[in-house]
């Protein structure tokens, strides 16, 4: 039984990180209907920012997540200004193609500048620390990251639901033309949403190097899982993405342990198919 809880807790902790990555994607996707293929690469760059701050001037990831967040916020804004903005005029898939190109640029930029070395921050504040609840081990880096993830997701959710800005975002998501008629500058909203999406993934990236090695290919699987989380939760629904991410983390761990580790992603993707078969708009979709 301890084993079961241990595996489940590990899964939930992983799920929290997925949630943070996915909530950024969910925002972008829900509001603008743009599949951002470079999302995993945003995460990778966020991790590099945090890594270099830690490596060069000894900033702990607990501090440098701010820098990563800001960096990815700016990266998001830049991406929107330079690329997405132009693609929105065309057919819906052109943004996908453009972000795919962007992901190639970013990935190989990292390869070019930082070499393909696997980089790991050592001696961080949380490095190797653990707490015990009964017999269940809770690794501190993952725990703190999860708490952060939860807080950030809740802040984003609060902003969307309770502030004027959030209402404007919601209005834009529901009907762009009508929102414009109401005097909302949808262009600004789009810009901001892309920035916020970057911010979420940047914060996640900032915290991860305390236990995950950074290399140019690190973002790939995270990006993929984030897609599934968002679709499973229902587009544009942040609680949906959170729930889906936790579910995916849980199923991944339990499926990996009780079926076979090699099947863990089969179980994850199978779960997605199952959910959308039952609820074609995802868990919380409208």
């Amino acid at each position: 039984m301890t084993m079961f809880f241990q595996v489940a807790i590990d899964g939930l902790l992983t799920g929290m990180v997925y949630a943070l990555v996915a909530s950024g994607l969910s925002l972008i996707w829900g509001v603008m209907d743009v599949l951002n293929f470079a999302h995993g690469e945003f995460l990778m760059l966020g991790m590099y920012v945090s890594y270099w701050l830690g490596f060069l001037i000894n900033f702990d990831p607990l501090i440098s997540w701010i820098a990563s967040g800001v960096f990815c916020f700016l990266l998001g804004i830049l991406t929107y200004k330079l690329i997405i903005h132009h693609c929105l005029l065309g057919p819906p898939l052109s943004a996908l193609l453009a972000t795919f190109g962007l992901s190639m640029i970013l990935k190989n930029f990292a390869l070019n500048r930082f070499s393909p070395n696997y980089r790991l921050l050592t001696g961080t504040l949380l490095d190797g620390k653990r707490t015990l609840i009964g017999n269940i081990v809770l690794p501190m880096p993952q725990l703190i990251t999860s708490i952060f993830a939860l807080v950030v997701v809740f802040i984003i959710y609060y902003v969307i639901k309770r502030t004027r800005l959030g209402w404007a975002i919601q209005a834009t998501a529901m009907d762009k033309e009508a929102a414009e008629l109401m005097g909302i500058n949808t262009e600004r909203i789009f810009l901001l949403v892309f920035g916020l999406g970057g911010l979420c993934v940047g914060v996640a990236g900032g915290l991860l190097p305390s236990y995950l090695a950074v290399h140019p290919e690190v973002g790939g699987l995270f990006g993929l899982i984030a897609f599934v989380c968002v679709a499973m939760g229902g587009f544009g629904s942040i609680p949906g993405a959170l729930l889906a991410a936790l579910l995916i983390g849980l199923v991944e761990a339990l499926g990996g342990f009780y079926i076979a580790p090699v099947f863990k992603y089969v179980v994850v993707f199978g779960l997605y198919l199952l959910v959308v078969m039952l609820k074609p708009k995802g868990l919380f979709g409208w």
Binding site: D10, G220, L221
Partner: peptide
């Protein structure tokens, strides 16, 4: 225990 390379975590592998 085979696993997919580039994994985001190896919890279930190590647990197994």
């Amino acid at each position: 225990v085979p696993f997919s390379p580039g994994a985001t975590n190896m919890n279930s592998e190590v647990q197994t």
